[in-house]
């Protein structure tokens, strides 16, 4: 079994959607093509614990918080204990908050390549995180921040120039599953 959140359709005839905790706890990911007959209740704490037995500590930590916030306190407590056990097995165990900051770092970094997100906000979040937690100031993270700053900086390229074409590539998008996308999303590449 996997565990997921079932979200009822907003209106009649709409689609029921399923969201699961992303690998390493970095947000939620929609699960597609769920067969309704394969879905069962998750009222039992031990059933859920069995379903997440092989998950990593970060996944368990994020899921524990979500259960805590949604009133599943017994499940949340068990998940949190399991997360700490997983963390304890790391060669150099980080604190719970350090793990949480890493989750946030990867989450906000991932947002920069999601469609329709506000990269200036992503940058603000990442800069704040790096400010608060100096362990995140690795050379590669710093390089990423500098590049993101240049991505969100006001564009100076003149339309029609090579520089403008390169700037437009920051909005290029290709469906990872190969489904056709809107022509505009690939126009910068073909130009």
């Amino acid at each position: 079994y996997d565990v997921a959140y079932r979200v009822p359709a907003a209106k009649s005839g709409g689609r029921v959607r399923y969201w699961e905790v992303e690998y390493r706890g970095v947000g939620l990911r929609e699960r597609e093509y769920v067969e309704p007959a394969a879905v069962e209740g998750a009222e039992s704490t031990s059933d859920v614990m069995r379903a997440v037995a092989f998950r990593d500590g970060d996944y368990l930590l994020a899921f524990a918080v979500q259960c805590q916030e949604r009133g599943r306190f017994d499940l949340a407590t068990r998940l949190y204990a399991q997360a700490r056990e997983e963390f304890g097995e790391d060669e150099k165990p980080l604190t719970v908050f350090e793990n949480l900051h890493l989750i946030a770092w990867v989450y906000w970094r991932k947002q920069t390549t999601e469609r329709g997100t506000d990269r200036a906000q992503d940058l603000r979040r990442l800069l704040e995180l790096a400010e608060e937690d100096p362990s995140l100031r690795t050379p590669s993270n710093d390089r990423f921040l500098r590049r993101l700053e240049r991505t969100v900086a006001p564009r100076k390229s003149k339309p029609g120039t090579v520089e403008a074409l390169i700037d437009e590539l920051t909005e290029y998008w290709d469906d990872p599953l190969g489904f056709p996308q809107k022509p505009a999303e690939r126009a910068s590449y073909w130009k």
Partner: peptide, 29 residues
Amino acid sequence: HPVLADVAKEYKRLGLPLPPAHAELVRIN
């Protein structure tokens, strides 16, 4: 180690997402 309520507070402060309030936890076989 911090209590879970404090971890949850930090999780939200960091802008990490929660499932919709009306979502129901299920298992998928």
